[in-house]
Computed example of a mutant assay.
Amino acid sequence: MPELRFVTDPELTPELIDELVGCWTDVSNAGGSVGFVPPVTAADIRETADAAFARCGDLDHLLVGFDAEGRAACWLILGDAGSWLRAHWRWVLRVMVHPKHQGRGYGSQLMRAAADASRAMGVEALHLTVRGGTGTERFYMGLGYTEVGRIPRAIRVAPGDDRDEIYMVSHLSPLP
């Protein structure tokens, strides 16, 4: 399995932002459930991306996996929980592996790197949501996540195509 170099909060140069938006566009158009439904363009994603990246390095943390050529192969955001009462956990947001890298184990490497980076920040648990009907909950369960809730028909992909939103958690240290 090819190894990636993971960087937490890399400098968000215009070039890196373009790479990340390009990845987001390609993942969306390949059917990935990362906030959009195909077909989309980079322009469709840019406003959402700019808002997400503006929070990174302060409240949220961007984690990027770079391939051997130094290109962004996968990435996610560790999102602030929004309250000091929840400072011990983070949301895992926008998890994506570029389609050309699918099937190489990059998603598992990315999620393990997210757990490691979170532990280094003193985070005790990671929470995420997945779109029902995609099967991604099995991937996360294989990494130690547990389904803790489900909201039926919370996500409307298209008229007549409503999906459950599935809430999952991974405790990074044993519960007391």
Rank of each mutant, 00 (worst) to 15 (best):
C74W: 12
G132C: 04
Y106P: 08
W91S: 00
K100Q: 15
I77S: 03
R138S: 01
K100P: 14
S108H: 13
A72R: 10
L78H: 09
R131P: 12
L93Q: 10
G79A: 09
A115Y: 10
E69Y: 13
M96C: 13
H101C: 06
G122Q: 14
V92E: 06
L59E: 08
R104S: 05
G132F: 07
G103D: 10
T134P: 15
G57H: 01
G142S: 07
R90Q: 12
G82M: 03
A73M: 00
L59R: 09
H98I: 09
Y140F: 07
M121Q: 04
G133W: 04
L110W: 11
G82W: 05
R86M: 02
L63V: 14
S108M: 11
V97R: 08
G79P: 08
R90L: 05
C74G: 13
G57Y: 00
I77Q: 02
G65T: 03
G65Q: 02
V95H: 08
G79C: 09
E69K: 15
L63T: 13
R138F: 08
H101L: 05
E137A: 04
W84V: 14
L110M: 04
R94Y: 08
G105C: 13
D58S: 06
R112C: 08
V123S: 12
M111I: 03
P99R: 15
Q109C: 10
V95N: 04
L85Q: 11
A87T: 14
S118C: 14
R131E: 14
W84S: 08
H127I: 07
R119F: 12
L85K: 13
Q102M: 03
F139P: 09
A73F: 07
E137T: 09
G103T: 07
G57V: 06
M111S: 01
L93F: 09
E137R: 05
R90T: 05
L63G: 11
W75H: 12
R94H: 14
L76F: 04
L85P: 00
T136F: 01
V95R: 10
C74K: 04
K100E: 15
L76T: 11
L126R: 13
